[in-house]
């Protein structure tokens, strides 16, 4: 659990002496084992907040506690080695192999080489890169999606309880982004890390986050589950930022197969269970049907997705 208490970052313009708050009196706690998205327009202070957690930026006021311990009580380097860090630019070291990149933090921590080597292979496997093919390659030989998988493996190498991610999938093309996001959610389901993820992409936040902290002008606009924000926006800003189609966007993050219920599928239009709920909705509208039959991968009907189920979900 990460707690921010009255966190503040103030900048002073050296020429005019004017003060500017990038983050002002922010109190928030990120629950353990969940993904929390820091969402907001550019300049809202979300990245500053993230970088204050691993002290890449030093706060000018307030406290940050990780599992009850103030982050200022140890050296920043020690702190950072216990916190995974993934950035948009990926930042793989081009002069090192994939394996050496992943091994960076264990090496910094002085862990035994043999153990690290084993761990690197496991991690590459975990992020879906075949170790035999990828371990000895250079980052420049990989695609963007593969690079960010390595980036995630590198952040997980020392098994940190906390992971900070700064627009981790922002630089990937839409197709690669979907795949890496899926893979990442799959990993998170197994590892249950405490993850703070900065994003300005509403779809990404709705799709991946267990909780969203929506920020505006250095302060918290609303903190809650994606459902809370979509259904019960705390202010006009929240409503406007998420947009009128927020519920539709939310449906886009859900799979038809996850929402279906057992029922009578005769005469209903049929859809692939891997389609998202938003696509299912548009098929219902096109076919003027109140429900669709959901097919499994074997082409057999597995269940029924009804209008009511969509309404409850989105």
């Amino acid at each position: 659990m990460i707690e921010l208490q009255h966190l503040e970052k103030r900048y002073t313009n050296p020429q005019t002496g004017a003060e500017f708050y990038a983050v002002k009196d922010l109190s928030l706690s990120f629950p353990s084992g969940e993904i929390t998205a820091l969402l907001g327009p550019s300049g809202c202070g979300k990245t500053t907040t993230l970088r204050m957690i691993n002290r890449l930026i030093e706060p000018t006021g307030g406290h940050i506690l990780i599992d009850g311990q103030d982050t200022r009580r140890e050296r920043p380097e020690q702190l950072r080695r216990r916190i995974g860090y993934v950035i948009q630019q990926i930042g793989l070291f081009p002069h090192l192999t994939v394996a050496q990149n992943v091994a960076t933090v264990p090496d910094l921590l002085g862990q035994p080489k043999a153990q690290t080597q084993q761990r690197v292979l496991e991690l590459l496997e975990l992020v879906g890169l075949e170790p035999g093919r990828f371990a000895q390659r250079r980052p420049a030989e990989l695609s963007g999606g593969q690079q960010q998988r390595v980036g995630v493996a590198r952040a997980l190498a020392a098994d940190p309880p906390v992971l900070l991610m700064d627009e981790p999938f922002g630089a990937l093309d839409p197709l690669a982004r979907d795949m890496v996001q899926d893979a990442f959610l799959e990993i998170q389901r197994r590892l249950k890390k405490t993850i703070v993820m900065v994003t300005h992409d509403i779809d990404e936040a709705l799709r991946m986050a267990d909780r969203i902290a929506l920020m505006n002008a250095g302060a918290l606009a609303q903190f809650g589950t994606p459902d809370d924000l979509v259904r019960r926006p705390a202010s006009d800003f929240v409503r406007q930022f998420l947009g009128e189609d927020a519920r539709l966007r939310q449906l886009a993050g859900l799979k038809a197969a996850d929402l279906m219920q057992p029922g009578d599928a005769t005469g209903l239009p049929q859809i692939d269970g891997r389609l998202n709920a938003r696509s299912a909705l548009s098929i219902m509208l096109r076919e003027r049907a109140g429900a669709v039959a959901v097919l499994g991968e074997d082409g057999q009907v597995k269940g029924v997705l009804s209008w009511q189920a969509l309404e409850q979900a989105g």
Binding site: R80, R81, I83, I90, F93, P94, V105, L164
Partner: peptide, 10 residues
């Protein structure tokens, strides 16, 4: 970005 990544890794 590389310097940032290196610093962020501790």
């Amino acid at each position: 970005a590389l310097k940032d990544a290196a610093e962020g890794m501790g």
